[in-house]
Design a protein around this nucleic acid. Sequence first.
DNA 1: GCCAGAACTCTGG
DNA 2: CCAGAGTTCTGGC
Length: 176
Amino acid sequence: MHIRYSVVDYPLGRMLVAATSQGVCMVSLGDDDDALRAGLAAEYPSASIEPNSIVSRQWIDGIVAYLDGQPPQPDLPLDLRGTAFQWKVWRALQAIPYGSTRTYQQLAREHIGNVGAARAVARACAANPVALVIPCHRVLRSDGGLGGYRWGVERKRCLISREVAHRSTSVDEAMV
DNA sequence: GCCAGAACTCTGG
DNA sequence: CCAGAGTTCTGGC
């Protein structure tokens, strides 16, 4: 497998977009370019990663547009590897509208049909390789807590508050 | 290979 | 408060 990638600015820091010939295979968030590159290498240990490569500007722009409330780009190809269970969770996540949130419990009950699978849902969210495209930051704990976030709880809170502020409607979220 | 324990959780005793 | 449930991964034997 051959991977090329770009690291670009986005409103909350730096963003890495990686792609195979099939489509986008990873979108990660951070502040340090080297850390992002290391994360990509760790995620795909057996892939050959092309240094100083570049990913289609159109794809990157499409992903950044998510932050401004744009609908998902229908022509943004993804190349994800996951189990059947993970795919089910990921598709449920993509159905969450901009600026709104769900809990792990809701996802387990409504999309898996098993409330007891809440922990498994969280595990699947954590395995999501494409930040923003699959909005795992919109899932919270049912006790009102943020839960965790693969790329930092702090970033998760920023993303949520940014979305809520951007849609500028009812802001009755009681987040800590 | 197999089993135990952990990881973005939640519920019931 | 503790234990257990559903899924995946990792590390020890």
